[in-house]
Write a protein that binds this DNA or RNA. Sequence first.
DNA 1: GCCAACGTTGGC
DNA 2: GCCAACGTTGGC
Length: 162
Amino acid sequence: MVAKKEEKNYWLMKSEPDVFSIEDLEKVPAQTTHWDGVRNYQARNFMRDTMKVGDQLFFYHSNAAPSGIAGIAEIVKAGYPDFTAFDKNDVHFDPKSDKANPTWYMVDVKFVESFARVLSLEDLRGIAALQNMVLLQKGSRLSVQPVTSSEWQAVVALARKL
DNA sequence: GCCAACGTTGGC
DNA sequence: GCCAACGTTGGC
């Protein structure tokens, strides 16, 4: 019996570098962290239902100067309950999340590489192949979003040209 | 700091 | 179920 080969999925995940940057991820033990604090259902669904170990993601710096894609990380642990939702002292505490039936999920991500420099929104808007990228759509502010493989390749190609 | 766009809440 | 008010995100 031959297992069906699962396609690798690509993602983009946003973090404010003042809070947690890709440089922070590179320095942390095992270069791995849990991606806690996502409190949006669409983003939650991606982490809980679709992300799997081995998927790769663009680490996006939001509210930064400039905002943009800072590098690459990979999923090393698939969706599991976000325990910060249960911690009364955590900024991400959510009294409505029940341990028996958690509302919020997270994944673990591991550092892969930092780009030579951040690819700004302006850089990305200059690439025709990225016209339909979720990130670049007007009003789009989803903090965990899918990236197609052609978009992934176009961004990586741009990063390699730096 | 401003503000547009989006998501959530809650009165009815 | 509608929708106004409020809170959050995130570029600029």
